[in-house]
Design a protein around this nucleic acid. Structure first.
Length: 410
DNA sequence: TCTGGGGTCCTAGGACCC
DNA sequence: TCTGGGGTCCTAGGACCC
């Protein structure tokens, strides 16, 4: 048995889900983007007005009508022809491709399909790692068929089953580890399968740009390019010591391994969250003093949402923090760790409020966020203390004075 | 009218303890 | 009196990913 790891990536996931609902949009420039502004009323009406497939194309909102601060989440191929793409501001996109049809992001619908395709996979190959709405890693090693043709047979089975049951296509890469599998899944998009063996490193991986390595982003790539390193093969030629000098112990060693196709990470079937947060970008930049009331209401709402998320997921936390983004797009964070766990909205609001006081607020704000970290499960035996530590201390002192507790117990 | 929202992980300095 | 390390926790910022 050799180790075979698959990476499965749904093809243009959001757009594909939308096309299942609105087949009449096939081939047209369509942009899916976050936005809760003007056009949304139209769009929400459309979404409520089923059967959706019957809506004439002219009835959809046009990108040109959009006003707001949303960005593109997904653009169809026809829209990309006009130069628009992921993460671009919708206002800018509207100038490049005004005739594009704009759909609001419908996370509930995508999550529904996400749950479906993951269940299909897990029924066939139970060692599956969730990597977000449209991606998973799967350990093929011990699954029947997982070794045949390097994993191709099992990959095809999964692909076919997902398509039959959801109408969606995906691409799969199968390789000796996650790192290579992730790269391989991009080789034959859409609806493709790519099989990579260790021996293929030189021919299939080394010619690729460094940026294709999951974990090398724009900053690292730019730095590599400054040293004339553009391909993974060129990266692999670098001395380990030099990489460590340039990128630090951990990152340097990781770059060296990655370039040589080495990755020992296991497929993780479950994980615990580290933090839970909510943030929002305002319709317009807000001033801390002049818009105090509006800001305060949003702040409280964010705290309530975080508290709601904590409760519904069954967590509580002891590090409460805020995030601010100013009108110049610079961000700051402040956080505070207390010696009790909470999931209570007003407690979070109060602690987050203390964090906010530590930030100078001259510039106008465009974003506010609230975060709770240091999480533990609510049903674990961690003590939940809703009130101040001082109250705890009061209680303890009283207990001491009345002789209810022996001093050495502290 | 540039630039969303929800995450993870790493680094680096300071506090504090052994 | 002077001079150490190591380990952990906290905080702030930043890179990166989906």
């Amino acid at each position: 048995m050799i180790r075979r790891i698959a990476h499965l990536d749904m093809d243009a996931f959001y757009a594909s889900v939308e096309l299942l609902r609105y087949p009449q949009l096939k081939g047209l420039p369509v942009v899916i983007g976050g936005g809760r502004r003007s056009v949304d009323d139209t769009l929400l009406t459309l979404h409520a007005d089923r059967p959706l497939g019957k809506i004439p194309v002219e009835a959809f909102a046009r990108l040109a009508d959009y006003t707001g601060r949303g960005v593109i989440t997904t653009a169809t191929y026809a829209a990309r022809q006009s130069g628009v793409g992921s993460a671009m501001g919708l206002m800018k996109a509207a100038k490049l491709c005004p005739q594009a049809i704009l759909l609001p992001v419908d996370f509930a619908e995508y999550r529904h399909y996400s749950t479906s395709f993951k269940k299909i996979i897990a029924d066939i190959a139970p060692l599956m790692e969730d990597r977000g709405v449209d991606e998973v890693y799967i350990d093929f090693t011990d699954v029947p068929g997982g070794q045949r043709e390097g994993g191709r047979v099992l990959a095809r089975l999964i692909q076919k089953t997902i398509f039959q049951q959801t109408g969606l296509t995906c691409s799969v890469g199968v390789a000796p580890n996650k790192l290579l599998a992730k790269m391989a899944s991009e080789f034959n998009k859409p609806n493709g399968i790519a099989i990579v063996f260790e021996a293929d490193l030189h021919t299939q991986i080394w010619p690729l740009a460094c940026r294709k390595i999951n974990g090398i982003g724009p900053k690292a790539d730019e730095k590599l390019q400054r040293h004339g390193i553009r391909t993974i093969g060129e990266l692999a030629q670098q001395e380990l010591d030099w990489l460590i000098d340039e990128f630090g112990q951990k990152a340097g060693a990781w770059l060296h391994d990655a370039a040589h196709g080495i990755d020992h990470r296991a497929v993780q079937t479950s994980s615990e969250p580290v933090s839970i947060s909510r943030e929002t970008t305002f319709d317009r930049d807000l001033h801390a003093v002049r818009d105090k009331a509006e800001l305060g209401a949003i702040f409280t709402q964010l705290c309530e949402q975080v508290a709601g998320d904590l409760s519904s997921k069954g967590y509580q936390g002891k590090t409460i923090g805020i995030k601010l983004r100013f009108d110049d797009f610079k961000s700051v964070t402040r956080d505070q760790t207390v010696d009790f766990y909470t999931a209570d909205a007003s407690t979070i609001r109060q602690l987050a409020g203390q964090c906010l006081k530590r930030v100078p607020l001259q510039k106008r704000l465009r974003l506010l966020g609230v975060r709770v970290a240091g999480l533990t499960r609510q049903d674990s035996n961690q003590k939940i203390v809703e009130n101040r530590p001082l109250a705890l201390m009061d209680k303890a002192l009283t207990a001491l004075e009345t002789g209810a507790l022996e001093p050495q117990l502290f």
